[in-house]
Write a protein that binds this DNA or RNA. Sequence first.
DNA 1: GCGGCAATTGTGGTTATCCGCAACCCTGCC
DNA 2: GGCAGGGTTGCGGATAACCACAATTGCCGC
Lengths: 199, 199
Amino acid sequence: MIGTAFIVDDDEAIRDALTWLFKSRQVACREWDSAEAFLADWQKSMRGCLVLDVRMDDMSGPELFDHLAERGSQLPVIFLSGHGDIPLAVAAVKKGAFDFVEKPFNDNELVDRVIQALAFNASQQKRHEGQATLASHLAQITPREREVMERILDGKYNKVIADELNIAMRTVEVHRARIFEKMGVKSAVELAQLLSGLK
Amino acid sequence: MIGTAFIVDDDEAIRDALTWLFKSRQVACREWDSAEAFLADWQKSMRGCLVLDVRMDDMSGPELFDHLAERGSQLPVIFLSGHGDIPLAVAAVKKGAFDFVEKPFNDNELVDRVIQALAFNASQQKRHEGQATLASHLAQITPREREVMERILDGKYNKVIADELNIAMRTVEVHRARIFEKMGVKSAVELAQLLSGLK
DNA sequence: GCGGCAATTGTGGTTATCCGCAACCCTGCC
DNA sequence: GGCAGGGTTGCGGATAACCACAATTGCCGC
């Protein structure tokens, strides 16, 4: 199994029950007794999913969720709620919570969802690695090259680009070659496809 | 205001209240007393949003939602629920419902959400028009041209494409020109960007 | 059988892209 | 001052793309 289930709940009985439940299905887990404690330990590199109680003292589950979102957390979150607060559940799901389940929950269903969340996180991870690679390539592009690149993506001829930037065509060609090299592509078409997902 | 609020509820009192409420805020609306009735009248060209009761005889709100989704409806749906069923709400939102509000609802907030849904539908509409234009252009592409197009998008040289398809380079050039013409682009880069959103 | 459409190919010429080789200018840094 | 890196440019040639003009083949429907 890839990733760990991170249990955050101020009720020790619940934590123990969840830990036992997860262990029984070979799902690795760790536990925290407060949102603050988890936030203190949280690192962007964490892989897994969060099983998060809604109602807790001081910082609530949704509050922790928001804080993590601000910090760029990619962890899928499964909320556990003990009282049927629909607006809360709807708000959480709309903000991207992976799931929102009511207590008492069905043990098997919960673990199934956790496993799905772990798989989701793993696949999301790969996507982000790709984006990171892309970003690191983009970071190597100098400002001038960026200007040229934008115009290449507009399908403009080197001649036109040279004209717009008031430089020689040869210079554009050099920039163009450098851009392709730095971005790891072989043609303008590949470059366009590589960057098509961005702004 | 662009679009209409489509009210579907088997409770006449609720329908009347909603109609009055919407009229008071200059939001056009129509009403149906059952999911079946709405489904019978539904057309893909409808513009607006659906205000849908969860619990109804025969076909429920979520069931109607599913049916509409199958038929390619783009209407945002705001569910009205009289009983705090969290799993239902969570399932609805995860399946793409625009919102899920509990009765009794706050009048102003509901209308605000409806207006947001109408705006959302209008903007989604424009996106879909663009896709439709793209699709109509793609439909003009012959099978052979498609084969060439795929290879162009792989950044392959005409020479290579000719080789792969066992035809003359000149033929590839002709196809290439026809593709650009039919798709309304001027270069392979533009073509790549145009089709980047697809599979 | 004729007209239309898709697919095909050739010739010849213009325009663009792609590259190696060389070189100059400027800025920031040790 | 020397060195590195980014931006710049020229020359010349190989390769690819783009295009107008022209033509052949095969399938389909009226």
